[in-house]
Design a protein around this nucleic acid. Structure first.
Lengths: 330, 330
DNA sequence: TGCGTAGTCGGAAACGCTTCCAGCGGTTGC
DNA sequence: GCAACCGCTGGAAGCGTTTCCGACTACGCA
């Protein structure tokens, strides 16, 4: 930077001000500095800049499963707005339980970022305590995180949309394939999605047969296995509600293999509106995933700018009727 | 850090050496410093550390499409090994042409990273020139990038495996759905995949009917449209080779809608072995995506350690036969 | 006993910026 | 006409590390 200043015939102080867009620099001087920087193809050293100044210009993004569509889409949306704000994204993948413990214990992002956003992942209280040690803003998206400004869907409402649709079509015997997060075995992805099922059945005066509920780890293959369980019942359901599209897609594969027709012999409904759902003609409850990432990014920008961000946003879901649901055969 | 040094009763110089695992520190002293740091829950300021020292401990990862499975899986693999090496991942998404130009023009990662890895994306010569301005190591994965140490599959071989399979089954009239990258219209994803098709046909003594080739942008929906084109021919093919599974899945949807049976009326083969391919019972040529990311990460570690990394690795692909291919009806 | 040496440790100078404070010439208000 | 003021600029003090270099200790050997 000394070179640039010399070339522009100004002091380092002025050069610094010009380069970082501070006021109190004559337009002409600024132009001269910028030109000098350009010629020397000089860029400010972020390290030195942060050392002396304040913010790092970086945001940590914590995500449990990079290669799953839902999380990747969330990240995509988030990244786009952070990039527009000239914020760099530091990616932290906390795939399994060990990673996760390690992340919250070591806090590898400490002192490295201005904020942290947690994607699609509930944060436990003890983890929250660790996170707060970092003393930076925290935002969540796509997961049911309390205590933080966050954006997500209403899982219960989404579940209701799916199950109510099946009930409306006339189904009385409805199975549910609940998905748990493989990283947190036994922990339901969305407790709301399960509650919605029971509430919908109760409201419709239908019995809640525990046989009809099977819980598996997330994933198409497990969805397929779950459907096998359901088919092995003495009296299988006439419709199945899956907690996510991938699981539903797995279930459909089992049905196809069994020679059953969809939707004539069995209706299937999922949640998410995964791109594959369209190709598979799967009825589902769509949630705006990319948009949730975008909203979280905007929220963060506000927070970083010092404005009091909204506490939380719930984005709407909507039923997308395709060819995998129909009234039951009588 | 001054606090830590004081508490441990040593100078800052010694504290620094102890904390960054340098030699020439008595074991007992080091333990004392570490304990003091622990008690004060102190972590080194990376900014200051880099300013004085050398490396940033960060790696830039450039990826064209975060939310597509292939790229996300690559990133997943890469991230896991970088994390093990205590390297932070700075994510740069260059979705469309504008992003891309902007990235290579502004080089936002400049001075921020020790290395850069390009995922699933060919780099043009002019872009390469810009990249080299950063003066850091460069590694590529999942794309056909020349001049860099890189890991990828042999696209031509993969294409041959797919097309040869169809030919072996007895198909004589084989369609191809070629995919281009939406970010770089007109640019074939894998020129090799196209060449393989022509070479296979030629080797089998089959005519190369231009009608049978349709080129679309990547994506399931476009795959579906491409299949419609193929079905509108006077004499449609008996089998279709798609450049990627998503495209193949789209094609299958059109076939299903048309009431055609797979594989009886039409065989379909893809490339990638997308998780959905298994659920859709799609025959495909599998490539180890996650592993390519891992290998790229290892290569980078070597490079950063000063060892001469291998110039490039080609990982093998293999045909996975499922239910979407069969001999043609006669 | 004296001296060289290996192993540790401390002082202090960078590292490349930002920002406080002061100075400078020129305006404005009375 | 003078003082107060304003916009712009420069000097210099940090910011929190690392590392060079010199000093100090304890020990082995002649």
């Amino acid at each position: 930077m000394a070179d640039v200043a010399r070339r522009a015939g100004v002091s380092m102080a002025t050069a610094s001000r010009a380069l970082s867009n501070h006021p109190h620099v004559a337009a002409e001087t600024r132009a001269r500095v910028l030109a000098a920087a350009e010629q020397l193809s000089y860029v400010i050293s972020p390290e030195a800049s942060r050392l002396a100044g304040g913010a790092t210009g970086r945001v940590a993004v914590v995500v449990p499963h990079i290669s799953r569509w839902f999380f990747a889409a969330l990240l995509d949306g988030l990244e786009s707005v952070l990039r527009d704000a000239d914020l760099d994204v530091l990616l932290y993948h906390v795939g399994d339980t060990a990673d996760r413990r390690d992340f919250f214990q070591r806090l590898p992002a400490r002192r490295k970022v201005d904020a942290i956003v947690v994607l699609g992942m509930p944060v436990r209280d003890d983890e929250r305590a660790r996170l707060e040690l970092m003393g930076v803003h925290i935002v969540a998206a796509g997961g049911q995180v309390e205590n933080y400004p966050s954006v997500s869907i209403d899982d219960t409402a989404a579940g209701r949309q799916a199950v109510d649709h099946l009930i409306f079509l006339g189904h009385r015997r409805i199975g549910m394939i609940a998905a748990t997060d493989p990283a947190e075995p036994g922990w339901p992805t969305g407790p709301g999605r399960t509650m919605a099922y029971r509430a919908a059945l109760a409201d419709a005066g239908l019995p809640d047969d525990p046989e009809l509920v099977v819980t598996v780890e997330w994933g198409g293959r497990n969805g397929a296995a779950a459907m096998e369980r359901l088919l092995s019942l003495r009296e299988p359901p006439t419709a199945v509600y899956a907690h996510s599209d991938e699981v539903a897609l797995g279930a459909m594969r089992t049905l196809r293999r069994a020679g059953l027709r969809i939707p004539e012999d069995m209706s299937v409904v999922g949640i998410d509106d995964h791109p594959m759902a369209e190709l598979a003609d799967l009825t589902t409850v769509a949630q705006p995933v990319h948009e949730q990432g975008v909203l979280a990014g905007r929220m963060l920008r506000k927070l970083l700018a010092g404005e009091p961000g909204a506490d939380g946003v719930t984005v709407p879901t909507r039923l997308v009727v395709r060819g995998s649901t129909a009234p039951p055969r009588r």
